[in-house]
Every structure is written in structure tokens, then in C-alpha cells.
Amino acid sequence: MRQSRTIAAQAMTGLMRERTVMLVAVMFVALVFVSAYLGWAATTTVNAIYADASAYLASVGQPVPPNPVTEGSPLAILRNLSVYVSLIGAFAAVLTGTRLIEADRTAGTLPLMAARPLERVTYARGKVEALGRATAAIILVAAIVSALTLVVMPQVRVGAADWVHFVGFFALSWAYVMVFGLVALGAAARFSAPAAGLLGATVVWLAVTFVLPAITGNVTPTAAINPVSALAAAPDTAAFQLLGDLFGPLSLSESYKFISADLLGYLPDGIQPRGLIPPLVDLLLALGISGGIALAGCLALDPNQGGPDA
């Protein structure tokens, strides 16, 4: 077995035996079910409101506009998922990235590995592989639950093109959570203090989710966690234009929500992405940079620090 495979396999087994990691993973899956329910409940309610309203409009002789539910893509009922991925999904990835390193540190096995013929870059590759597989697993579960929801719901008709978008959305979600997982992995490797990885990556995640959208488009924090309100147009001024250009590329949650809304078909008309870089390029760049952070963290990892033998 290749050394990086050995590291990844051991790390995956370790993660599956950690109660805290499993709890957060289960929480994410539970919220995927909640999201499916919310999609169903909201769709049914809006449908019922539409029926009521169209009866009223017809009775007063006014034209009846088309039903907003049937107008958009059937995938739009999954829109809450983009919020849960950016909240719990990202948090699960942060926790996983942190534990992948901290498990070795608390077990005191870093010196044992460092005193073996193992290149540091191989260690990093094994850990990144484990992170990738762990986050892919939870995203896959989310995809399966969502696919079943779409198949089961009677009013929804999903075409072949929709399924392509569906796959694209989950691939994108995986890439998005990986960004935070990789930052956490790099921070946990670089800093040996307990919970340093968790806290460091959480600060980045908080800034990306709640502060940057306020700067680029005056999106308040609670609007940032509503899939529809998060897509507000920035106030039309030179100042916000400049702020958007400057901070837009850093505002990853907005890039993710923009592409998600586009793929799931609930992007309001006329909304432009923030910043000068297209959102997909922005996310791919972020993935590359966070991979670099993880690698740099692992290369700078000091096996003598932080363990029981420190």
C-alpha cells in the first residue's frame, strides 16, 4: 500500500470512530432532510397561496400572473441546501480538517511518523485525500437524499438538463466545503495550540459568510443565511461598486450562492456577481490557494510541539 494511502485509510477509520465528527456529520444529514421538508412545505404553501390569490384576482377581474413556483426550475426546491452546505457542511469540513491533524498530535504519533522514512509531502497528500473522501461522503449523502426528494415529489418534473445541474451543484458544494476544510487542516498543522485549527478556520469562515457580504453589497448577516435574500443586488453607487470589485473575489460565500442559485434555477433576474472575477473561477482559485495553505501547514508542521511528549 502506498504511504499516502496508508495515512488516508488510517485517518478515515479514525474519523469514523470519533463521536464529535460523526455527530456533526449526522447533523448535516439531518439538516438535508429538513431542507427537503422545507422545500416541500414552502412549495406547497406558495402553491396554496397562489390558488387562493388567483381565485381572488379572477373574481375581481384582474389578470392572474403565472405561478412563481412552476415558473422556475424544479431544482429550486433544494435552495435551502445551499445555506446548509455553507453553514453545517463547511463546519463539518473545518472540524474534519482539524481532527485529521489533532488526532495525530494528541496521540503523540507525529514524532513516530517523522522518525520514519516518510516525506512530509506524502503525509500532506494522505491527509488531503482523507479530507476529500470524508467531505465527499457527506455531500454524496446529501445528493442522494435530495435526488430521492425530487423523484418522490409529485408536482416536480426533473429533466435531463436539470440532473446535469443537480450534479454540478453537488460538485460545487464539495469544492466549497473543501476550501474551509483545507484551511483548517493547514492551520491545525501550522499551529500546535489546542483547537487552533478549529478557531482559525472558523474565523475565516465567519468573515467569509457574514462580514464580506456586508462590505460588498450591504447584505446583513441574517439575510446572508437566507438563500433568496442573500442574492440582493448591491446598492447602485460608485462606493459599493468599488467595494464589490475589491472584496468580491474574497467573498466566497457569495460566489458559491450565486452559482448555486444559477444551477438550481432561482437566480433573480438582473443580479450580477460581485467582483471582477467570475464566481466559478473565484471558487477554483480559492480551492487552489487553500490547498496551498494545507500543504504549507503540513510542511511547516513541527512534530515536537503540542503532543503528550512536548
Partner: peptide, 9 residues
């Protein structure tokens, strides 16, 4: 998000 008014832009 359960608020129907928030379901449509």
C-alpha cells in the same frame, strides 16, 4: 425561509 413571503424574490 418557511415564511412564504421569503420564498419568492
Amino acid at each position: 425561509t418557511m415564511d412564504p413571503d421569503n420564498q419568492v424574490a
